[in-house]
């Protein structure tokens, strides 16, 4: 059993966006803080720190995780995908292009989390209905767009899938 006492720090090693990374954390360090301030991956945003808004969503060992409700220790040895890891694979460029064209983002603060959810969602549900897309998006708060552009962009990209 791994134990870490009060105030103790430990080196955490993980694979982030396919690259081996490591940094220090306490037992109580939130994964969101570890990614941002220890690994300098500032693309993950913190919107509420109580697991509601979805801005800090990342993919942790193939599952979606609110990184503010996850401990850095839980990422030890894990594989993580953050917004910095979305690039040219799959439908990611098409998704970015569609988000932009449909006005699916404004301030962009919630967008990283949304895009990671969408990536995970389309892998599990390649042909979602608009209702399913809205249902999935209910796990994210966006105060700028009214979500309409997101729904259109996601539907369009899903539609274009083989």
């Amino acid at each position: 059993m791994m134990r870490l006492g009060l105030g103790e720090r430990r080196r955490i090693s993980c694979t982030v966006n396919g690259v081996a990374r490591s940094g220090f954390a306490e037992g109580r360090t939130l994964l969101s803080d570890f990614l941002r301030h220890e690994l300098n991956l500032y693309g993950t945003h913190v919107g509420c720190e109580h697991g509601v808004c979805g801005a800090c969503t990342v993919i942790l060992d193939s599952r979606l995780a609110r990184s503010c409700g996850t401990l850095a220790m839980q990422a030890d040895g894990a594989e993580i995908t953050t917004i910095e890891g979305l690039g040219d694979s799959d439908r990611e460029p098409a998704l970015r292009e569609a988000f932009s064209r449909h006005g699916a983002l404004q301030c962009g603060f919630c967008t990283a989390g949304v895009l990671l959810s969408v990536k995970h969602f389309l892998q599990h549900n390649p042909k979602p209905s608009d209702g399913e897309i809205r249902d999935m998006l209910s796990g994210h708060l966006c105060r700028c767009t009214g979500y309409e552009g997101m729904v259109r962009a996601i539907a369009e990209v899903a539609e274009g899938q083989p």
């Binding site: 693309g43 913190v46 970015r96 292009e97 932009s100 064209r101």
Partner: peptide, 21 residues
Amino acid sequence: QAVPRFEDEALMTGNARFIDD
């Protein structure tokens, strides 16, 4: 014209910098 925003790419790739960054 419906010019897509130039702000978007940085925001969608984790390159945009906010105060806490």
